[in-house]
Simulated scan of single mutants.
Amino acid sequence: MEYEQMIATVRKRAGLGENEAVRSVQAVLSVLGERLAGQEADHLAAQLPDRLDASVTRNPQGRRWDIGEFLKHVGDREQVADADQVRQHAQAVLRTVAEALDDDQRHDLFAQLPGGITDLFGVPTPRG
């Protein structure tokens, strides 16, 4: 998926303007990358458009955030206070990210995330 297509898809799904969609994508990818351990953030970034590489935070230890903490950090970085809006934006971004990943990468990504966060992707969690 190309950068422009990803931003346009998030804009449509979340009902955002261009700048807000970019900020939302950057915030969600930053928090998601920080949540991932090992090289998983690098693997994620490798399947996203090059312009988003710097948005994916690398944290080899990974954070142990649950869904509530995850969304709080997204809201803080996105500078959106309304919890429902933060969830809607995160779902729009993560659903779009899920579509950009191949099955193996999606499986590896989901293996590191708790159910509440994987639910935001809007796709069935791979088994096995």
Rank of each mutant, 00 (worst) to 15 (best):
T125F: 09
H107W: 08
P49H: 01
D82T: 02
L101T: 05
L113S: 08
R13Q: 12
S24M: 13
A92Q: 03
A27L: 07
D76Q: 12
A54T: 09
I67G: 06
E40W: 08
V28W: 09
A46Q: 06
P126A: 10
V28R: 05
V97L: 10
D53H: 15
D42Y: 14
R127L: 13
A90L: 04
D108M: 14
E69N: 06
T118S: 07
Q39S: 07
G75V: 08
A21T: 01
D66P: 04
D42V: 13
V86G: 08
A37K: 13
R11L: 00
V86E: 13
T9M: 09
R13E: 08
A37S: 12
R64Y: 00
N19T: 12
A83P: 14
V123A: 03
V123T: 04
L109E: 03
G75Q: 10
T9R: 13
E69A: 04
P124L: 05
A45T: 09
G15W: 04
D103I: 15
R23D: 05
G62E: 02
M1C: 06
I67Y: 11
Q26C: 05
L29I: 05
A21H: 04
G122Q: 08
Q85D: 13
A14M: 00
V123R: 08
E34D: 04
D66W: 06
V56Q: 09
G128D: 15
I7G: 02
G38V: 11
I7C: 04
V74K: 03
T96C: 04
R95C: 03
V86K: 05
G75A: 13
R95L: 01
N59K: 13
R87K: 15
D76I: 09
D103W: 15
A46W: 10
D102I: 12
Q5S: 12
V74S: 04
V80S: 02
I67K: 15
G68F: 11
L48F: 04
V28Q: 07
Q112K: 12
G68C: 02
D84F: 03
N19Y: 08
G33M: 12
R127K: 14
D50T: 15
E78K: 07
G68V: 12
L52Y: 04
D102M: 12
R63D: 01
G75S: 11
Y3N: 09
A90Q: 02
A54H: 10
A14P: 02
D102H: 14
R63K: 14
R11P: 00
G115H: 04
G75P: 13
P124I: 02
L48Y: 00
T57Y: 12
L36S: 00
V86C: 10
D103V: 14
